[in-house]
Write a protein that binds this DNA or RNA. Structure first.
Length: 175
DNA sequence: CGTCTTTGACCGGCGC
DNA sequence: GCGCCGGTCAAAGACG
């Protein structure tokens, strides 16, 4: 259903974030939590945040180290067993958005929906549709503020975002 | 016709 | 040991 076509490469704009701005006018970060014990401030691998890191930057969240502790929302520190299969990087975002389907450039396939006890809203489970990439993401609405959406990324992409690929493959061609 | 969402069932972990 | 709860699977349906 999510006919998310990658941004047409013909735009050749230099700022992907600008595209995002047009894409999600009602996009506002409230909290972002880094739930990874192994990843310190430097642990913010560009691989993992291939495209979302753009969003973080534009939300003017202090990139200064230890800023992750800035989050007021106490997410249960799920420092559980981390599969050595690249999974081990957990990042949770809380965004203000009407739509819970936020296209971050990756292709996600929904594989489950569950009602959780803590919240009256269902929780959706997505998996990266790229072969060999078993990154998961779970999306749910804030129990207290339905206008907020909590997105939790689980794992690291072993491939670039389709958008990035696009930009890589089309360095300059428009006439 | 192919792809993706939906939905209930199943499974494993944890707490009591 | 049992029950609860969260996460995943897989068949069926819907949609393009």
């Amino acid at each position: 259903m999510d006919t998310h076509h990658p941004q047409n490469p013909s735009s050749t704009d230099t700022h992907f974030s600008e595209n995002f701005d047009n894409y999600l006018p009602e996009f506002e970060f409230s909290d972002f939590l880094l739930l990874d014990h192994d990843a310190s401030e430097e642990g913010f691998s560009p691989e993992n945040m291939a495209s979302t890191d753009n969003v973080i930057d534009r939300s003017s969240i202090e990139p200064s180290g230890a800023s992750s502790a800035n989050s007021t929302t106490r997410y249960r520190s799920e420092v559980k067993k981390s599969k050595a299969d690249g999974a081990g990087c957990r990042v949770a975002f809380r965004t203000k958005s009407e739509l819970e389907i936020m296209d971050d450039g990756f292709k996600w396939r929904k594989y489950g929906k569950k009602m959780v006890k803590n919240s009256p809203n269902p929780r959706n489970y997505y998996k990266c549709a790229s072969g060999g990439c078993n990154v998961k993401k779970r999306v749910e609405r804030d129990s207290e503020d339905p206008s907020y959406v909590i997105t939790t990324y689980d794992g690291v992409h072993n491939h670039e975002s389709p958008c990035v690929v696009y930009y890589n493959q089309t360095p300059l061609m428009e006439s």
